[in-house]
């Protein structure tokens, strides 16, 4: 450590500067500008601001009276809950099951991971065809199996939540699954052997050995899932567009996009973006606190 390379700090700065400059231009500057935009009056993308809003915090007041904003917030919270249960939970279950089999483990790993490599837009189109009202896969299946008289509208108020959540859950299960499988591989086989000698087998082994040793990985997945759920946009946008049905399926991400790109209300979209960041920070802090990692 006495090498001049470590004693002199300026070469480190040279290597850090490009990345810092990149972040400054493409993250910090737009972020600060976005905060400023949320106080300005901008009536279209690419249009110059026509001064400050009257009052300058107008968009933040508007959020409180906007029913679509309440829907978006509620749905984003539902999405967060569903992520914990169905994405992280299901991924953990699948990883535990795959970990216990010898034959076909690689096949299952590939199959479960596969949805991650397909673009969300392609998945959206795929699920649109599955849930399609006229001639969709599910409606054809129901008609042939149960001889149903009419088609089911999977995007109606009755079913839209399941229709929107299912593909999102399905898409990301593989991501957490791979993290869990890696975590499981890091658990020493000696621990299992010792546990087996003590009579811990089957579910006991899972609950008393595997899960406690997987705690840190689980915490990481939960933090990632909770914070990531706020940003979900592409798949719901392709499938549910402008809040289908009856403005019931808005998420914070889709509502922000619609305001900016379809309505041209750039300042309101910026205010929603600020809210998403604030919620993201709060969620990250709370989840980090709740799921604190432990040293073993």
């Amino acid at each position: 450590m006495n090498s001049p390379l470590y004693r002199k700090k300026w070469p480190l700065l040279i290597f850090l500067l490009p990345a810092f400059a990149f972040l400054a231009v493409f993250l910090f500057y737009p972020f600060v500008q976005n905060i400023l935009n949320s106080f300005l009056n901008i009536s279209g993308l690419g249009t110059a601001a026509a001064g400050f809003n009257e009052p300058w915090y107008h968009d933040y007041i508007k959020m409180h009276s906007d029913p679509n904003m309440a829907t978006a917030l509620k749905n984003s919270l539902i999405m967060t809950g569903a992520t914990i249960v169905f994405q992280v939970g299901l991924a953990l279950l699948l990883a535990l099951l795959v970990d216990r089999i010898k034959l076909g483990a690689k096949l299952f790993r590939t199959i479960y991971f596969f949805p991650i490599v397909i673009s969300a837009t392609a998945l959206g189109l795929l699920f649109n065809l599955i849930f399609l009202y006229n001639g969709g896969m599910l409606n054809q299946l129901f008609a042939s199996l149960f001889n149903t008289a009419g088609n089911l509208d999977f995007k109606s108020e009755k079913y839209f939540l399941a229709t929107m959540l299912t593909p999102v859950m399905w898409q990301y299960v593989g991501f957490y699954f791979v993290i869990f499988v890696t975590g499981l591989n890091n658990i020493s086989s000696e621990v299992y052997e010792a546990a087996e000698l003590d009579g811990a087998e089957g579910l006991k082994r899972t609950f008393y050995i595997t899960l406690p040793l997987l705690r840190n990985v689980l915490c990481t997945c939960l933090v990632l899932g909770i914070t990531g759920a706020l940003k979900v946009f592409d798949l719901p946008w392709v499938m549910m567009g402008e809040g289908i049905p009856m403005d019931k399926s808005w998420l914070l991400g889709t509502y922000m996009y619609s305001q900016a790109f379809n309505r041209g209300d750039v300042d309101y979209a910026s205010a929603i973006a600020v809210l998403i960041v604030i919620l993201g920070v709060i969620f990250a802090l709370v989840s980090n606190k709740l799921f604190k990692q432990k040293d073993y």
């Binding site: 009202y133 006229n134 009419g150 088609n151 995007k155 109606s156 839209f160 567009g241 289908i244």
Partner: peptide
Amino acid sequence: PKNTLTATDAETVQLMLDNE
């Protein structure tokens, strides 16, 4: 169309193509 409140434009135009 029965799903006019949830369908996309492409879906309803398809009804014309399908002679429905």
